[in-house]
Every structure is written in structure tokens, then in C-alpha cells.
Design a protein around this nucleic acid. Structure first.
Length: 557
RNA sequence: GCGCCUGUAGCUCAGUGGAUAGAGCGCUUCCCUGCGGAGGAAGAGGCCGCAGGUUCGAUUCCUGCCAGGCGUACCA
């Protein structure tokens, strides 16, 4: 990377000047007049040695002059003492060539090479609807998984689904009471909503069913269980397919419940847990957390106990170096306690486990309640997004299948982008009126720019225009962005923040659109062959970037 | 009460201790005889929640306060 090259040169210059080592920060100035890279190293060192920063910057810049090499055009001092680096035309042309020589790998890094990573995400619960929170977790988890892959890791995707627990007892209890017939996932979800009410009035009955589910002791309960589970899981599978996620491992609470209970009982004897008010608890207060129940007074294992067994089971099937668990922020405190307890049972696994919390998706029109009918389900949201995308297609000649495929790609793209364009920890306000944007900062905006670039490439081929890396024009903003892609990917992967990719792609697509509007590519005379190369490189980076967001590029739209 | 998170343009959000704080939506103007207008060019719109502190320099770091969200014992 050019960034590392510049950093090394600065290192060498500092050495020669006998200046103490300090972390060298290189940034891209907002104003390209200030160069392609700038460092504030003189300001920092001047502070430490109480020297004049501007003077120090001049000395460092002077030392750098003979180290410029072929990629750096000029090194100047500006402002309070910044050292600015301007890159050469040939650097940008070489970069375009590099992108096109290995399109699929452009943007990858080796930060995590050789590492085995498991990412658990989505985690919907059978018997409950797939709600917008699951959509959010899925979108974020998938993007993180891809970022880790781009960083060289071997990534396995895991989905942990709650097929036991009180929520199921609620749904089954309600079905038994109302003799509801279950055909679709919505039917099962409706029973769950009724079960919530039932639980408020007759919690004993629901608890009894809960015990039966756990013990598998009642035929009617067993039948309803099998039925509901199958319907829910099949519906979830449809959703994963639509969203473009393929899980390598499915874990179920039913598989880890017994084991979780045993672990807690074993470590109760060893003093990790203690008895309190009939339950088995872990006291988190000494570690700055709170106390949580690991076995209920009925002796049933709640989520806490199951998560302990889950960590071990995950490691048994895939000996990971890092295990990520993607959940909503509201589970941060919960997970902190589980991880603390885990550190006494499986210290090395606790060390390898990282929980990442994300914000919630809220509906602008009021608070959602799983009991009321005003829940926006994942399915309805996806459906709306697809319909919106379909409306926009104006091509009359397009057949139904093509139209459907495109609206899926674009609709899902709009949905995912609206989730990934901001920091994962902040909440998203979903406005049903305005729905998802298909214009401006949006997934379709990126897809459109990519489709357009690709259309130019196809046109050029017809016209017999052959690309070349001989640059005639001045340096364009597009080029100033293209070479930065690997740096952005690295940052997004390290910080676990896909929105860096999203922000970058918006900028890239914007500058390409400006370029496209201002310059003729085909028919651009002597400049045409390089402009074509630049267009192809832009398409490649947009495509790779969108891939990292879990968004596809349609053939046309 | 305590803990975690958040407060930037009318709205939704970017912003790595630095140079004139940026986008999109909405609003006001332009640009389809040119490779795809889901586009482009421009304009208006800011006590960066408030008050201190650290620093040559703070939207960014620290402290306090205000406002909102989430969590805080048998749900997940």
C-alpha cells in the first residue's frame, strides 16, 4: 500500500534527524489542494520537544525530498506545520491497472490471515415472527463476516435459534387453548401474541406447558411443538435465501439446554455459582456487572446456562480463534455477565469471545409491541422494499422474472444499505411513510452507478474501444478515491464498522457520476482508452464494496 | 438510584486532536439533439445539547449538568 510506503519514508526521515519515534498518523486531507496524504507528525513532535512546529515540518519535508520516488510528486509544508504529499499521475494510472489485473482481490488485506473466525448472528426464535431486529442483526452480521473474509480469515457463519423456552410455551399454550390451526409462520406468531396475554393471566398454566416442552412428556404439546418449529424454520430459510446469507452451522437451544444445566450444576459445587431464593445465580457485582440467574427455581436452564454450553459446542465443531456474537445493544450487559461466568469455566473461550451490540430499528409511527398488531415484521418490511423497487422499473420490455429478480436485488440493497450506512450502535428510525430511500445516499444509488459503469463497458466493447493505462487527463476525484479502498476495508474490519464502506462507496459513486456527466468516455478521443479503464476500475470497486455490505449488483435496473 | 449508549443543518446521518464542520432527504434555481435522469451543477439552511477543564489547537479527550434510549433476579 502507498500509505505504508509513505509512512516508511517519514520514519527514515525522522531517523536521520535523530527525532524520537512517534506514531505516524497519515490522513487524506478533505481538500485535495492539501495533497493526497498529510501528516501532523511535526505538530506532535514539536509539542513534545517544545519546538516551532512549522520549522520542524520544513526540516522533515527537506529530508523527504530525495526520498520521493516515482509515486510522490511533491512534498510541501502548509498551515501550522502539516507535511502534505501529492501523488504522481503515474501512481493513479498504475493503481487503476492494479485493480483491473486482479479484480476479485482488490481491497483485501491480510490482517486476519490464517485465523478461524465464527460469527453468530440473526438468531431468530421459532414460534415468533422474524422481526425487523433480526433483519438488522442479519445484515450487520453478514457484512462483518464478509469484512473478516476480506481480511484473510476463514469465516464460519452460525445461527443460534431458540427452539425451547418460555416463548414457545406461550405459543403452544395459546394454541391448545384456542385450538388454532397453524399453516404459516404468521399463524404461529399470532398464537405467540395470544400467549403473551395468556401468560399475564394464567402464568401457572404457561409454566406447566413450558415444563412439558422441556421434558417432552405430553403428546399434544409435542405435536404442536414439532409443527410450529418446522413451519417457523422453513419460513426463516426463505428469508435467509432472500437476504443472501448461507449459514455453516445451526445451533439450537434444545441441543445445549441439558449440557448448560449440567455445567451450572457442576460449577455450583466449585463455587462459581451460588444458590439464592431457590435459583442458581452468578454474582456479577464484584466485576462491575449485575447478578443473573443461571438456573431457575424450577431447575430449568435459561439463556445464561445455554450460552455457556453453546460456546463449548461451537468450539468443538470449529476450533475458532475468535468467536463473534452479534446481538442488539440491549444484551450487552447480559453478555458481559455470561462472559464473566464463562471465564471461570472456559477461560480460553471467554477470551476468544466478543459480543458486538447494535442499535435497534424503531418505527417512527409509534412504539412497537409484540403483543399488539402494530409490529412491523421482517417479512412485511422486505415485501415493502421489493414493491418499492419494482415500482421504479420503467422498462416495458422486461419480462416478469427479470423484473422480479431486479426488484429483489434493488429492494434488498435499499434495505441493507439503510441499515449499514450508519454506525452499528445507533438506532435506526424507520419511517413507514418515507420507507427506504432509492435516491441519494442509498443502496440503489450505488447499484445504479455500478450498472451504468458496466453499461459503458459493454458499449465500449461494441464500439471496439480498448482500454489503456496511458493517462491523458488531469487527476480526477474518482482516482483519488479508488486507491483508498483497501485502507477503508481495513478500518471497517478492525473497527467492526461496515458504515465506513458505505460512506466511502457513496463518495466514490458520487465522484464517478460527476465524472460521467462531465467527460465523454466513449468518443473521448485520445483520453477515451484510459477513461474506459477508469470506468471499469470504478465498477470493480463498487462491486467489491457492495459485496462487503451484502448487496448485489443487478445486470440492469 | 446505579451501569452502558446517544445528543452535529428542519429531518436522517458522516466526521482519524488539526486547515473553511460535510452528505442525503426536504426547499429554491438550472441541465435530457451526448456513453442509462434511480443522474449532474448550484443556492439557502450550523451557539457541533449546556458549563467548565486539558492543549499551540477540542465537534473529537476529561469532569459536571441537562435531555433521550437500553439494561438492572428467575424472558430472550
Amino acid at each position: 500500500m502507498i500509505r505504508d510506503e509513505i509512512r516508511e519514508k517519514i520514519h527514515a526521515a525522522l531517523d536521520e534527524l535523530g527525532l524520537v519515534e512517534s506514531e505516524i498518523i497519515l490522513e487524506h486531507p478533505a481538500d485535495s489542494g492539501h495533497g493526497d496524504y498529510a501528516t501532523n507528525i511535526a505538530l506532535i513532535l514539536a509539542k513534545r520537544g517544545s519546538k516551532n512546529p512549522r520549522e520542524l515540518a520544513e526540516r522533515i519535508a527537506a529530508r523527504l525530498q530525495d526520498k520521493r520516488g516515482e509515486n510522490i510528486r511533491s512534498i510541501t509544508v502548509a498551515g501550522p506545520g502539516f507535511v502534505n504529499f501529492h501523488l504522481t499521475k503515474s501512481f493513479f494510472a498504475k493503481n487503476v491497472q492494479e485493480i483491473l489485473s486482479d479484480i476479485e482481490n482488490f481491497g483485501k488485506n491480510s490482517l486476519l490471515s490464517g485465523k478461524k473466525i465464527m460469527v453468530e448472528y440473526t438468531d431468530p426464535n421459532p414460534f415468533k415472527v422474524f422481526h425487523i431486529g433480526h433483519l438488522m442483526t442479519n445484515t450487520i452480521g453478514e457484512s462483518l463476516a464478509r469484512l473478516f473474509e476480506f481480511s484473510g480469515a476463514e469465516v464460519k457463519r452460525a445461527n443460534y435459534q431458540g427452539d425451547v423456552g418460555l416463548h414457545i410455551a406461550k405459543a403452544i399454550a395459546a394454541k391448545l387453548r384456542s385450538r388454532a390451526i397453524w399453516i404459516t409462520a404468521a399463524d404461529v406468531g399470532a398464537s405467540y401474541a395470544q400467549g403473551e396475554e395468556l401468560f399475564a393471566k394464567e402464568s401457572d398454566f404457561v409454566q406447566e406447558v413450558n415444563k412439558k416442552v422441556y421434558e417432552k412428556s405430553d403428546d399434544a404439546v409435542n405435536d404442536a411443538y414439532a409443527e410450529g418449529r418446522a413451519i417457523s424454520l422453513a419460513a426463516f430459510e426463505e428469508m435467509y435465501k432472500l437476504l443472501g446469507t448461507k449459514f455453516d452451522f445451526y445451533f439450537f437451544e434444545s441441543e445445549v439446554a441439558e449440557e448448560g444445566k449440567n455445567i451450572v450444576l457442576e460449577y455450583l459445587k466449585k463455587g462459581v455459582f451460588e444458590k439464592s431464593e431457590g435459583a442458581v445465580i452468578f454474582r456479577g457485582e464484584p466485576y462491575g456487572f449485575h447478578t443473573r440467574v443461571f438456573l431457575t427455581k424450577e431447575g430449568l436452564p435459561p439463556y445464561e446456562a445455554k450460552d455457556l454450553a453453546l460456546a463449548a459446542r461451537k468450539f468443538a465443531v470449529y476450533p475458532y480463534d475468535k468467536s463473534f456474537v452479534i446481538t442488539a445493544l440491549e444484551q450487552n450487559a447480559y453478555y458481559a455477565v455470561v462472559r464473566q461466568a464463562m471465564s471461570f469455566i472456559y477461560p480460553e473461550l471467554a477470551h476468544k469471545t466478543v459480543q458486538i451490540g447494535h442499535g435497534m430499528m424503531r418505527v417512527a409511527s409509534g412504539k412497537m409491541s409484540s403483543r399488539k398488531g402494530n409490529v412491523v415484521t421482517g417479512e412485511s418490511l422486505v415485501h415493502d422494499a421489493l414493491a418499492l423497487a419494482a415500482e421504479k422499473i420503467r422498462d416495458e420490455q422486461m419480462n416478469v422474472d427479470e423484473k422480479s429478480a431486479i426488484s429483489k436485488c434493488v429492494g434488498i440493497g435499499a434495505l441493507k444499505f439503510s441499515i449499514l450506512k450508519q454506525q452499528i450502535k445507533s438506532d435506526i428510525v424507520y419511517d413507514e411513510e418515507r420507507s427506504f430511500s432509492l435516491e441519494g445516499d442509498s443502496g440503489p444509488y450505488l447499484q445504479y452507478a455500478a450498472v451504468r459503469a458496466n453499461a459503458v463497458r459493454a458499449r465500449a466493447e461494441e464500439a471496439g474501444l480498448v482500454r489503456s493505462f496511458e493517462k491523458k487527463d488531469d487527476i480526477h476525484a474518482v482516482e483519488r478515491l479508488l486507491y483508498q479502498f483497501p485502507e477503508i476495508v481495513e478500518r471497517a474490519a478492525v473497527e467492526h464498522e461496515p458504515h465506513h464502506i458505505a460512506t466511502y462507496l457513496i463518495e466514490l459513486a458520487g465522484s464517478f457520476n460527476s465524472f460521467y456527466a462531465a467527460e465523454k468516455i466513449i468518443g473521448g478521443g485520445a483520453a477515451a482508452p484510459y477513461r474506459l479503464a477508469l470506468t471499469e476500475a470504478t465498477f470493480a470497486v463498487l462491486k467489491n464494496g457492495l459485496h462487503l455490505l451484502g448487496i448485489g449488483v443487478p445486470g440492469k435496473m
